Simulated scan of single mutants.
Amino acid sequence: MSTPLLDVTDLRVAFTGRGFRPKAVEVLHGVSLSIGEGETLGIVGESGSGKTTIGRAVLGLVKPSGGRIRFQGADITHASPRDRRTLSKSIQVVFQDPYTSLNPSLTIGDTLSEPLVVQGATAGDARARVQMLLDQVGLPRDAGERLPREFSGGQRQRVAIARALAPKPKLIVCDEPVSALDLSTQARVMDLFIDIQRQTGVAYLFVSHDLAVVRHISHRVSVVYKGDIVETGPADLVTSTPEHPYTQRLLLAAPIADPVEQEKRRAERHRLAELHREQNVQAGVA
């Protein structure tokens, strides 16, 4: 078997609480996952499940308390700031909020060219690369001369995607990149992610709370519940016929147009939640 692009083994992350003599609270309890080149792994779970912490650990934004993270076979678990700057050429991120992830005082062209120039590109090469990126994400040719406030939410997220693509990364961590958008814009941006992956072969670690979103974009899905991965498998199977009660509840939580069927799904979700609680009590889980 070929070496995975990203290989996370027994990842643990703990945060220190507040107050007098605060204790460390572990939020990830030994998470393992892998992503191949050109693959999308969807990470799904409710708020507070730990899914975003996985992506932040890969990016070096939180410090693991245990386990190991390998990228292209190299251990990056405790990479130095200098090594992280080098890694940023290969690992990029698209954040959730397109309104706060862009500098409002910089033109789109400056936003996209700045990291290229820092990495050694000439001004001319950076301008050419920026124009290619704008074309790639479907923005008008004059977008580089405009400020972020002149764009819609969907267009700003396209700028954020272009910024992530600028250094030609191998992996992009996508942290709820469509949750702040309306449904029609979500669909267009997700299709853009898919098209870019086909063109460039980039891999995605795609974090979302929405099973429908990860079903649309992912090859495989891992479900996170209270800091543990409870189910992993092909996206079509995990998001249509899940085995774990928690994943089943996530599926039933998705709204549908039929109010009678929606009421049935709500009742079944409550039944599964109660069953899951009873199983935890029997197993001695707090």
Score class of each variant (00 low, 15 high):
V178N: 12
A180F: 11
A180T: 10
A180W: 05
L181V: 12
L183F: 04
S184R: 06
T185Q: 02
Q186A: 02
Q186P: 02
A187G: 05
R188W: 00
R188F: 00
R188Q: 12
M190D: 04
M190Y: 00
D191A: 07
L192W: 07
L192R: 10
L192C: 06
I194C: 01
I194F: 07
I194H: 13
I196T: 04
Q197W: 05
Q197K: 15
Q197F: 01
R198W: 01
R198P: 00
Q199S: 12
T200F: 10
G201C: 01
G201D: 02
V202A: 06
V202C: 08
V202Q: 04
A203V: 01
A203Q: 07
A203Y: 09
A203F: 04
Y204S: 06
L205R: 11
L205C: 04
F206Y: 15
V207W: 11
V207Q: 09
S208T: 15
H209W: 03
D210M: 07
D210F: 03
D210V: 09
L211S: 12
A212C: 04
V213F: 07
V214W: 09
R215G: 12
R215K: 15
R215N: 14
H216D: 11
I217L: 14
S218R: 10
S218Y: 06
S218E: 02
H219A: 14
H219R: 09
R220S: 14
V221L: 13
V221F: 15
S222A: 15
S222F: 07
V224T: 01
V224N: 13
V224A: 05
Y225D: 07
